[in-house]
Write a protein that binds this DNA or RNA. Structure first.
Lengths: 124, 124
DNA sequence: TTTAATGCAAATACTTTGCAGGAAA
DNA sequence: TTTCCTGCAAAGTATTTGCATTAAA
């Protein structure tokens, strides 16, 4: 069985609290605000472990910053407003199947995909 | 009409030569290899202008580095080997339609999308 | 004691900015 | 001259790593 240390557990519960996805820097700020004396390095290292153990997923914001979220829930993608940041979760089963097919066609293995939509929401 | 300076033109032709997408750092290296004395700053600034003028598109590599490519050509996506970097261009008309539909459904405007597949190619 | 976890500081890598010199109009 | 372009150096941001200390087993 997997071992899981305190920092990793803290990060998991913070990610649960956040509900969606958050960057390492944001998670760090949230924990510090809660009075936790955790260091930034530890946050990065714990996220890396969680990533290796496939407990969290990573994707990139438009500015290149890494965003982490818990896996396990139905895999979905996001429609993000590039002005105010509003995020809508979207379903993408058809995309999933398409990605699989393309990978197979080109003899690629272990294929993951990045599908994110960015635009302006109705308010912006 | 849009003005376009020498650096911007150099970058456009380099991007044409590359055929696909390339990072600012890569474009800089390519130009230097050709004996061009261009500076990295200028590469970044020219790319930013081309981006503002919607001459180029930007997407993110898995490690967060920005990749630029010319717009206008048939819009397609890529299947990238995360080990050796081999890139296969893939067609994605179904994805295009899906993205459009999702955007409309949520009243989003000016929606662009990022769809990239990363995996291991047959050689790796 | 032996191993794993932590934090600080330093190092990386990409990108942006301030500023002064140079080219172009 | 006046405006735009350029590059160097410095600053900024996210992330990683070396190392010594501490906590845990």
């Amino acid at each position: 069985m997997r071992t899981m240390n305190k920092s990793q557990i803290k990060l998991i519960s913070t990610l649960e609290r956040v509900g969606g996805f958050a960057s390492a820097q944001e998670l760090y700020q949230l924990l510090r605000r809660d009075g936790d004396g955790i260091g930034l390095t530890t946050v990065y290292r714990a996220l890396q472990s969680l990533l290796d153990d496939k407990i969290v997923d990573v994707l990139r914001r438009e500015d290149g910053e890494a965003l982490y979220r818990l896996c396990g829930e139905a895999h979905h993608h996001h429609l993000v407003c590039r002005s105010c940041g509003t995020t809508v979760e979207i379903e993408g089963s058809s995309v999933e199947r398409w990605a699989e097919a393309v990978a197979k066609e080109h003899y690629f293995r272990e294929v993951g995909h990045t599908v994110e939509l960015f635009g302006l929401c109705s308010k912006c």
